[in-house]
């Protein structure tokens, strides 16, 4: 197991290097002078030169990249050009909100998806199956921002059960915090739950058609035992993979969800800094998100190898 983990970690190094290269190049994709874009047309030549010097834009590109890499390795993502706050600090400040949102979304989606998928597979072609497969099919095509608007309209504007937007810190009022998180978490979790439900259904159906399940049936085992102790374990293997992949989609979806519901997370930080043309903050946040994404995937892969020893030896 240790060998597997160290092998995976080692394989990640070139990817991490390339990720930081892509993020570095983002600033240099801008048509024209990045300093001018950040400061606007009314900036004085002195200010422009100062910013260029601060960001190292007055140096040759390879040197810039080297110094960028050197800073990243030390955990220094630079400073915001608007607030002069450390980029990493700004991200860490907003991280708890994003973690809470994605965790709740994942929880809600599994809570809906797993029972739905299992019932669909075991009561195949029943009304419930038809209802949930259609629901899942529609759920995959639903844009999360449209779902968010519909949820706000129903539960906040019309029924007035939940606040439409805004965030209350957990330390201040736990109940208000949860109330404010319900709609965003449903918005974010809906697509994931549709995908996981569909896969649970098809994976379980496939396992249920295998010989060892027929053997179990021939032995006269109860249907419950067959499904829950024999079939489900094997059916869950592909489901775990897709759950891991969904985490990436959730992190991406958080950008939109946080912006709509005005939650102060890392996702809305990206969007806000884009509009403020605060490129160091954009670069830092994007780099942070993708590295976090890589590590989450690594953890899922390791868990997966732990659950299914066949993977390690493949």
């Amino acid at each position: 197991m240790t060998r597997y983990i160290s092998k995976r970690l080692l394989a990640m190094l070139p990817v991490l290097f390339l990720v930081s290269f892509v993020v570095f190049m983002l600033l240099h994709l801008t048509p024209g002078d990045p300093a001018l874009i950040m400061l606007g047309e009314e900036a004085t030549p002195q200010n422009l030169a100062a910013l260029r010097h601060e960001l190292g834009l007055d140096q040759p590109l390879p040197l810039q990249f080297l110094s960028w890499m050197e800073h990243i390795v030390r955990g220094d993502l630079g400073r915001s050009i608007r607030t002069h706050q450390q980029v990493l600090e700004a991200i860490v400040e907003r991280l708890p909100v994003t973690i809470e949102l994605t965790a709740l979304a994942m929880l809600i989606s599994l809570f809906i998806a797993l029972p739905t998928g299992i019932i669909s597979a075991t009561r195949r072609n029943s009304f419930l199956d038809l209802f949930s497969t259609t629901g899942a099919l529609l759920g995959i095509s639903m844009p999360n921002f449209f779902l968010a608007i519909l949820l706000i309209f129903i539960f906040a504007v019309t029924l007035r059960w939940l606040p439409p937007i805004g965030y209350t810190p957990i330390q201040k009022d736990l109940l208000e915090n949860i109330r404010g998180m319900i709609l965003p978490a449903i918005t974010l979790g809906a697509a994931a739950s549709a995908i996981v439900a569909r896969l649970t259904r098809s994976s379980l159906l496939e396992v249920l058609s295998q010989d060892y399940v027929r053997t179990a049936q021939a032995k006269g085992l109860a249907e419950r035992t067959i499904i829950y102790t024999h079939a489900l374990k094997n059916a869950m293997i592909p489901v775990v993979t897709i759950i891991g992949l969904q985490i990436g989609a959730l992190i991406g979806g958080a950008v939109i969800t946080e912006t709509i519901f005005v939650l102060p997370g890392v996702g809305s930080l990206v969007v806000d800094s884009i509009f403020r043309r605060d490129y160091p903050l954009v670069q830092g946040a994007v780099l942070f998100i993708s590295i976090a994404h890589l590590f989450v995937n690594l953890v899922v892969d390791i868990l997966y190898a732990f659950l299914d020893p066949r993977i390690r030896y493949a």
Binding site: L29, I251, G252, V270, S290, H293
Partner: peptide, 23 residues
């Protein structure tokens, strides 16, 4: 490896960043 690197960004985040830099 370059493809792995691109895949390690959540799609919408990278798209946002690219659009933001292109203007």
């Amino acid at each position: 490896r370059l493809m792995d690197a691109l895949l390690s960004f959540p799609a919408i985040v990278l798209a946002l960043a690219i659009v933001a830099t292109l203007g």
